[in-house]
Design a protein around this nucleic acid. Structure first.
Lengths: 238, 238
DNA sequence: TTCCTATTGTCGCACGTTGCTACAATAGTA
DNA sequence: TACTATTGTAGCAACGTGCGACAATAGGAA
């Protein structure tokens, strides 16, 4: 098993990503567990010396989720000196049989750029990396204790996502190509953490001009079938 | 004249600050000019190896503006490889008689964290640093060409500021303790880059519950005198 | 076929906010 | 005592939103 070499990466700089998905009417994020330690943390990584920061994040997410072309959103850079806790990383490395003396640079202080991304839960096949035992979805309100300041990162990511909701068509990434308004409302509610009124939400979405109505969806339920919608992409619609 | 030593600072990491002030009914920002080059750029700096990122920015702004306790807002971290243009920094260093061989680390690739701050124009005494000829206010729509991606930084800072306007009581930092609603409107217009309707703005501000009305301001003008207001701080008001 | 029920799509109404106009109330000057 | 520029406030229409009412289903049960 190979240790990342200091010559390949920028020192003192890392990224961590908060990957949001939606399933079971709940907002979920990807959390990894370091092998043999019970430690949980956000998936992150280092930035190659000749690699764009955005690309490094994209690469990391591709390796871990199999997804490409994700929409990344940077939300904050964490640069407090209190983040530096070399003993934690030392524990992780030695618990996995890594030669710590070859990975001294990983024990240094790190400034970390936080990104979040909205993805379709059902398209992901989480792949743990060399250091981690598992990479799993956790409901946003049932997270395990996280290492370092990762809990703060999640909170800040969610805060930023909520503030940016008006800017982005959430469903674009979290839902299948075609979806019902109810699904859209459930995702929105999961993100905002509050219930919305059905008819107001329906009216607001329909009058926004962002939705295209398609055929009805017959689920077999004994009630009126809802229409399916998709988001209007540039040029479509009127 | 001393060159910053690599052992004192984190390599590859810097910050740049967009300092907003308001004067002459215009939004202005602080721009420095590197000595003997004609190059203009945002004031920035490096982060000490044991220094909080926020503190580094605060220190830099204190040295350059004389102001302390500024409200800093981080808006984006720039990490593209295209930012790396060593020849520019080499020119700046040699134009100032700095021994370039002692400052090789400054020619490396840098990831830069962008901050903006709102301050009271009239309280600032800009102080150029060792490398810069001047540190001056420029109206936001009359900026000189800026080095690297600093123009993009300004645009992004302004964009973020506009989006966060509802969160912050702008006048708190850009206006004196007591101000008229007209002044507040002018600052807001300068930031948003658009004119607002007087009576609507007045009504919105008064009904927001954030303003305390004080005595009138008699300027000598032959017309009704406006009231002075201040922002309600926590606990004040009703 | 005829109910019955759960869900969806719309409409109507009250209420608060905002753009805009009108108008009264100054503060100084002619 | 006019006159002017500016400020404070009210009125009205337009619009978005919370909320309830109701019609229109899609299937299952009687």
């Amino acid at each position: 098993m190979q240790v990342p070499r200091p010559s390949d990466y920028l020192p003192h700089l890392a990224y961590d990503s908060v990957v949001f998905g939606f399933a079971g009417e709940q907002l979920r994020i990807l959390i990894l567990e370091y092998r043999n330690t019970g430690y949980h943390a956000l998936p992150g990584g280092f930035v190659g010396r000749d690699e764009n920061l955005d690309e490094a994040v994209r690469r990391g997410l591709r390796e871990r989720t199999g997804l490409d072309n994700l929409h990344l959103q940077q939300f904050h850079t964490f640069g407090s000196t209190r983040r530096h806790q070399p003993e934690v990383m030392r524990t992780i490395l030695s618990a996995n049989g890594f030669p710590v003396d070859q990975a001294e640079w990983m024990l240094d202080r790190f400034i970390t750029v936080g990104y979040y991304s909205l993805i379709n839960y059902h398209l992901v096949t989480p792949r743990p990396d060399a250091l981690s035992d598992s990479l799993k979805w956790y409901a946003i309100d049932e997270l395990p204790p996280l290492l370092w300041d990762h809990r703060e990162m999640v909170d800040k990511a969610l805060y930023t996502l909520r503030r940016n909701l008006d800017t982005m068509l959430i469903g674009t990434n979290m839902l299948p190509e075609r979806f019902t308004i109810k699904q859209l409302q459930q995702v929105t509610e999961a993100i905002l953490g509050e219930k919305l009124h059905r008819t107001s939400f329906q009216r607001r979405m329909l009058s926004s001009g962002n939705l295209l109505r398609h055929e009805k969806l017959y689920t077999g339920g004994s009630h009126k079938a809802p229409y399916l919608y998709s988001f209007v992409t540039a040029g479509e619609g009127d």
